[in-house]
Amino acid sequence: MRIRKALVVATVTGTLVGGAVGVGTSMASIETYDSPGWLNPDGSIDASRWPSSMPLLDSSGQVVGYVNPDTYVNANPSGVTYRSGNNS
């Protein structure tokens, strides 16, 4: 099920004048998007609806082909961290 949603983007500027904080001009825009068709209500991804092929975007966001999202690689992680032990 696809749900059209709106993302409100706001910019808030703050100033500090004479020890008083003033929140100044704000502006907002609304961008709309669809919730992914493969999304479950808890935020997990429905494996049966997860596609084997997805559009591949270039640096300008244009579709330049289709790839398998489970095998395609074009980036590296910046880092990895680990935690172990029972620290509940």
Partner: peptide
């Protein structure tokens, strides 16, 4: 990393 294109989600980066 997926991006909304206006009609669908596309792959921008994959690790």
């Amino acid at each position: 990393l997926l991006k909304w294109t206006g009609t669908q989600y596309g792959i921008c980066k994959s690790v």
